[in-house]
Every structure is written in C-alpha cells, then in structure tokens.
Design a binder for these strands. Structure first.
Lengths: 212, 212
DNA sequence: CACTCTATATTGTCAGTGTCAATATTGAGT
DNA sequence: ACTCAATATTGACACTGACAATATAGAGTG
C-alpha cells in the first residue's frame, strides 16, 4: 500500500512524500504541539515546496487524521503485544493490569499521536481513521471478553465494560498529563499511579461475593 | 470583581469588554469550534477594533485560559448543586451517581468550555485558572470523602479515588463525544449510557464482602 | 526510440490571522 | 482646568491555509 523507495533524493518527484510528511509531522507535533504545527514549516523542513503536501492531503486536518489513524493502529498493536506476553495459566487480572499499563504508557510515549487521536473527525471523510479506531475498540473488547470467559466480567455486557475501560484509561492519561493534579499525586512515579488507579477499578471486576 | 455596567453603548471606552469578550468567545466556540475561533472575528463581532482584546488578554491563549477558568468554576458549582439536592438520609451511592451524571451532562451542555478546559496551561502563567481547577478537585474530593464517611470508600485514599473518578468521568465524556464508538452504544440515550458506565465503576466502591 | 498522458511538484497569489508599535480618546483625580 | 493612566484605534508585518496556473518527470504505448 505504501510506496517503496525509502531514500528521498533531490529528484523532482519525491517518491515517498506522504510517508515522510507523516513522520516529520509527528516529530514536529512532539516538539512544538498541535497549535504550532503549520503545513508550510513542515514542507520546508521536508525540503519541498509549500504546496506539495496538498497532493497527498486535501487539508491540514487530513494530515492530522492520518497521524491519528497511525496512532490507533500502533496503539492496538502495542496493547495486543502487551497482552500476549503471558503464560497460558496467567490470571486474567494480571493481564488486565498489564494491558492498562501498556495503554497509558503508550499515550505518554506517543504524545504526538495523543494530541490528535481524540478530536472529532467526520467519519465519512476519513474512513481509514474510522476503521483504525474501530479496530482498537475490537482489540479492547476481545480483551474484556477474555475476562468474561475467566469469570471476571458479568456476561453479555462486554461492550459496556470496554467503553468503560477505554474511558478510564483515556481519562487517566489526560488528567495525569495536564498535571493540574495537586502535589500528593505528583510525587509518585507514573507507574505507581497507573497501578493504583487501575487497581481501584478492577475491584469492580472481581466476581460477586457469591463466588469465592 | 467584574465591572458593573451591562449595556455596552457606542462609547469609546467599552467599560465591559473583558466580560463580553469571554461571553461572545464562548458562543463562537460553541458554533465553530476552537480551531475556527479567531481573535479578529471575535473583536469584529463584539464591535470593537481588532486589537482591543489585547488590552484584556496578553494572548489568544490567555482568553482561552479565562474561559477554561470559568468552566472549572461553573463545573464545581454545578456538581455541588447536584450533590446538595438531597434528603439527609440519602444513600451515598445515590448521591454519587447523581454527581457523576451531573458532571458528564455539564460537559455535554458546555462543549465550548469543554474544548479548552483540558489543554495544558502553564500554571505559573495562569494562577487563576490553576486555582479554579484545584477548587474543582477539592469539590470532587470532599464528595468522595463523604463516601468514606459512609463506609463506601476505603479510608486514607481519597485523593486516589478522586482522580480515579475524575479520570473516568472525563474519559466517558470524551469517548462518548467523539462518537467513534460503534452502533450498539449509539442507540441508547445518553442518560442510560452514563448510568451504566458509572454503575460499573461503583461496584468497586461497595464495601468489601465482610460487610453486608 | 519518440510521444503522450497523468501523477507529482512548483510558483504565484490572496484573504485571514496573531501580534507588535504608534497614536488617539476618554474619564477620574488633582 | 490639567494631568495622567487606562482603554481603544489605526497601521504594519510576517506567517498561514488554500486555490489556481504552470512546470516536470516517469510510465505506458506506438
């Protein structure tokens, strides 16, 4: 699907521009933030005319949507990898906790993507982004369904538990990231914070008292 | 604290400009979104020169910070009001649920504020915003502490439960608002969605099995 | 090989935008 | 009546997103 040539020489036809624009765009998002990112500076930095990006993206928004799409694909992969690091008899709660940690850490380590993933995009306009986002949801849901199979989640409500979990994980990232929380939280390392928060949640996931 | 004159005639000195800029700014945020908001259009719409806003706000960001500040103040009020509609013997879980609902509904009904409340702002640059945000946190925390007094929340961890709750509520709003959730969720009315999600959470809040 | 055709990139242009500087207007306090 | 500081205006500049017209190159065809 992507073009093949990697090196972009000084030829008139870049050959790889779309991919490079996304890569450098991500770098600039990381360095300066969304509101500081301009297509013109991006073009200049890539070494291309100020209008070249418009061959590959209808819009500035379209570029951001492409980055968001990549974010969702990477996120789904990252979570799945984290879940797969497992022994066959591993307790589901342990896996649940590891997945949550993987989600939040991914966001902190990919702030460029995070900045554009949760804006509103017209799904008709960006079907690929829509698919990528739906794919992430499926990954999360199948994870929760494993919890149902293990008896940790009440059956028949996997979608509800999925959006609940997603909401919580996203919220944890945003609240911790804006750093408007007061000192007592700020002292602990990020890892501990994630662990503590998620622990609190999965108390609600434990089997009802009528099971040991 | 705010200036008193309400009507803004065609006098050279507006007398009320800061307040009006915030109000009209909120209206424009609601209509067109953050990225479409420009100080110049705002000034034109208020009927003032394109540089008048710079008397009251150092920056475009400063205006948005002022709106965010107002958002936190309103939010804290809204939640507190919702919590106070109560009979003295009301079960804390009922109050908890009502507060959560109030939070999410507030966000949906104040999307203008919501758009600017959770960006990163330099807290040294905007101490008022910082205070307002901290104030909201205190309101949430005292709410949770009532839950501790009622025996619903494990003692000594109110800050953790507070940020957990805040994270979840914020996440619910964002996830539901971006509408990238799949159809099965989209059918239910918002109210039911909030109820279902929060219900799932407060299973974790119930007293441990060693209490009836 | 020559030739066309299309994807790709460039140059030129324009209205809008954020922000600085310089200037004008006003009203409150002396 | 006069001063002065707060407030608003006009003017200017570089930068931005986006459109239109033009240039280039490389792949497919004869």
């Amino acid at each position: 699907m992507w073009s093949v040539s990697i090196s972009h020489d000084k030829s008139y036809h870049h050959g790889n521009l779309r991919t490079v624009l996304i890569e450098v765009g991500i770098a600039m998002l990381q360095e300066e933030g969304v509101e500081a990112l301009s297509l013109r500076m991006l073009a200049k930095r890539v070494g291309v005319s100020h209008n070249a990006p418009y061959m590959h993206f209808a819009d500035k928004e379209a570029l951001l949507a492409a980055i968001a799409e990549q974010g969702f694909l990477l996120l789904a992969d990252h979570i799945q990898s984290a879940l797969e690091l497992t022994t066959p008899d591993e307790d589901w709660l342990v896996r649940f906790h590891r997945g949550c940690r993987a989600y939040v850490m991914f966001m902190f380590e990919h702030k460029a993507h995070a900045q554009v993933m949760f804006h509103y995009y017209d799904s008709a306009k960006y079907p690929d982004l829509s698919r990528a986002s739906a794919n992430t949801l499926y990954v999360l849901e199948s994870w929760i369904q494993q919890g149902q199979a293990a008896g940790y989640v009440t059956p028949g409500e996997s979608r509800r538990w999925t959006t609940l979990t997603w909401s919580l994980l996203h919220g944890i990232f945003v609240i911790l990231n804006t750093k408007r929380t007061l000192p007592p939280l700020g002292d602990k390392p990020l890892d501990t914070l994630i662990h503590d928060h998620v622990s609190s949640l999965y108390l609600g996931l434990k089997p009802r008292p009528d099971e040991p």
